[in-house]
Amino acid sequence: MPQDRSLAALGLDVVPALHPLTYPGRPVPGPSLLTGEELLPLGVRPLPLGQWHVAGRPLDEVLAGRGLASIGGRHPVMAVGSNASPAQVAYKLLRRGLSPVVPMVPVRVRGIAVGCSAHIGRAGYVAAAPCLDPAAETSLVVSWLDQDQFRAVDETEFPNYRRALIPGDDFGLTMPSGERLDGASLYVGVRGVLADPGTGLPRPGGGHQATLLASLLDASPRLRDLLGPCPASWVRKAAAERAVRESGTRIFAEEGWDLRQPGLSPYGDGAVGL
């Protein structure tokens, strides 16, 4: 019998925007074509992505059969947070009336690590943000978005992120096939990333949201007064009121935890929110 490739059957159907303590959600486990409710495996070949196979047919042919843009007409966008989650990507696109069909591929990246953005997002969680780390080698999911999808994802990231264009030569963007990408877009936190109070280095992101929020509450009496006593109260209060989110974000800065990432500035294209 054919395997059930629904997001629910694969355990990938939880949307972080709706369940903030699950942030960043579960990423795609391998090269895949998201169709909305399903995640179809992409067969890696020593060929350009459009010629990889899905269900026995070239990816570009499958996309064309749905009346959608081929890989050559799409924008590669790298995720450090919930944009690696197929459920989150489908949710963002479907609620805007757009096609949820998106090729998603884990790509090896040098020099970029995952940190925590120095702001509190609309859903109440503290989202991920990239930070420079010359020693890092990370697997980050790249999604190929058509023009409408690209514009919609931009809107979901504004005003807390700006889009940067990361060149493949500088960061070694390598596909599972061994092909090197020319570049990919990446959303960079406008307030920088959270610093670890003990070391002054970027606080690692990508872990359990509840653990992160509990640590931040323990480190700041002002955050406990505003958002405590626990992670569940944090996301509930933050999601309910913009003023609370803004106050919490301001406390991050006043505690001296916002660590800017000027090294990423030369790659910015300034496109988000324009």
Results as ranks from 00 to 15, higher is better:
residue 1 M to D: 14
residue 3 Q to P: 12
residue 7 L to V: 08
residue 7 L to T: 04
residue 9 A to L: 11
residue 10 L to M: 14
residue 13 D to N: 12
residue 23 Y to Q: 02
residue 24 P to W: 11
residue 25 G to C: 12
residue 26 R to W: 01
residue 29 P to T: 01
residue 31 P to D: 09
residue 32 S to P: 01
residue 35 T to F: 01
residue 37 E to Y: 02
residue 38 E to N: 07
residue 58 P to D: 05
residue 69 A to W: 03
residue 74 R to P: 06
residue 75 H to W: 08
residue 81 G to Y: 10
residue 83 N to V: 06
residue 91 Y to G: 06
residue 93 L to Q: 04
residue 98 L to C: 02
residue 98 L to F: 03
residue 109 V to R: 09
residue 127 A to F: 06
residue 133 D to T: 00
residue 134 P to S: 05
residue 135 A to I: 04
residue 137 E to D: 00
residue 140 L to A: 09
residue 143 S to P: 07
residue 145 L to P: 01
residue 145 L to K: 05
residue 145 L to G: 00
residue 146 D to N: 11
residue 150 F to Q: 03
residue 154 D to A: 02
residue 162 R to M: 12
residue 167 P to K: 09
residue 169 D to Q: 14
residue 172 G to E: 10
residue 176 P to L: 12
residue 180 R to M: 14
residue 184 A to E: 02
residue 192 G to I: 01
residue 194 L to D: 02
residue 197 P to W: 10
residue 201 L to K: 14
residue 207 G to L: 09
residue 210 A to K: 04
residue 211 T to Y: 09
residue 214 A to W: 13
residue 224 R to G: 03
residue 225 D to F: 09
residue 225 D to I: 07
residue 238 A to T: 07
residue 241 E to W: 04
residue 244 V to M: 02
residue 247 S to G: 14
residue 250 R to E: 15
residue 251 I to F: 06
residue 256 G to M: 12
residue 257 W to T: 01
residue 259 L to Q: 10
residue 263 G to V: 12
residue 267 Y to P: 02
residue 272 V to N: 11
